[in-house]
């Protein structure tokens, strides 16, 4: 039995990235036949179909996945699929859908702990989320999650993030920026120079989400940071929701709005621009710390 995102996970496929645990499973991952189409899907997108409680995802040359009711995932592997490839899409888009089905908020980003609270770095791919998070971990801060940040609101309407699993996905040049050598790590896929890096310290308990930084890179040679207020906070949350396109078909827009509301009320949200090159990691880290009270 594995544990991630606050869930006990029983899986037919080994998930070495995840922590192990015991107890009753919340999610069951099994091999099985997966249909090519859903009956009367509410929405159809590229390689996916969705309806309430159901998401069908088709990944060429890897697998077909059916994610059901936030508690079951069927996998039908396709020819020559490697376990690494199956795991990548399972722990990525499939878990994104499963989190949506459970009415939780999934943000696309990376999170670390600072003074008993969670700081989330979100933004587009290439913004520097994982690299910045890894730089904090290198300085001794505890790691919470990479890629998907799962948030629920507690009984006092305070947004709490669940730890993901102790793995950071870093590109070769990010590892080099951190003064390390990619050769020390294993690749997430044989065909990509992107590696699994295990953080030294890792948080396992839920933490309140106190800060969200939306990272952006631009070609100007300066940093800019803006405190986002009011309704604009919702735009940041929506823009950075993990696979937000699944929400409508899964009929989870209301649940998404409710947790977004609790995040918008509680968390301080910044929009931060950094020069795209050079990366200026130390300065970026300093700027984040300066803006955390």
């Amino acid at each position: 039995m594995y544990r991630a995102f606050g869930l006990n996970i029983q899986s037919c496929i080994a998930l070495p990235e995840l922590e192990t645990t015991s107890g009753q499973p919340d999610v069951d991952i099994v091999f099985g036949d997966v249909p090519d189409f859903l009956d009367a899907p509410k929405t159809k997108g590229i390689r996916y179909e969705a309806s309430a409680g159901k998401l069908l995802l088709k990944v060429n040359n890897v697998a077909k996945f059916l994610v059901l009711n936030g508690n079951k995932i069927f996998i039908e592997p396709l020819n020559n699929a490697t376990d690494e490839d199956i795991r990548l899409f399972l722990l990525g888009s499939c878990f994104g859908a499963l989190i949506h089905q459970r009415g939780l908020l999934a943000l696309h980003g990376s999170a670390i702990e600072i003074e008993n609270s969670a700081v989330i770095f979100t933004g587009l791919s290439e913004a520097g989320k994982s690299t910045l998070s890894a730089a904090f971990v290198q300085k001794g801060y505890k790691f919470i999650s990479d890629d998907i940040c799962v948030i629920s609101s507690d009984k006092n309407d305070i947004p709490q993030i669940f730890s993901g699993f102790p793995q950071m996905k870093l590109w070769a040049n990010s590892i080099e920026k951190l003064g390390d050598n990619p050769k020390n790590y294993s690749r997430i896929r044989r065909t990509l120079e992107k590696y699994n890096v295990t953080p030294n310290q890792y948080v396992t308990n839920p933490l309140p989400v106190k800060y969200i930084f939306e990272l952006n890179s631009w070609n100007f040679p300066r940093f800019e940071i803006k405190n986002i207020t009011g309704f604009d906070k919702f735009a940041i949350i929506k823009d950075n929701t993990y696979r937000a396109r699944f929400l409508e078909g899964l009929e989870q827009l209301n649940a998404h709005f409710n947790i977004s509301n609790s995040v918008a009320k509680y968390a301080t949200i910044y929009k931060l621009h950094r020069p795209s090159s050079p990366f200026m990691l130390e300065e970026l880290l300093g700027l984040v710390l300066q803006n955390i009270k």
Binding site: G45, Y48, V59, S93, L124, S125, T191, K194, R243
Partner: peptide, 13 residues
């Protein structure tokens, strides 16, 4: 791409 595709381009070849 990342908005419309069901996976992030950063995980793809």
């Amino acid at each position: 791409f990342d908005n419309y595709a069901p996976f992030y381009s950063s995980d793809l070849t």
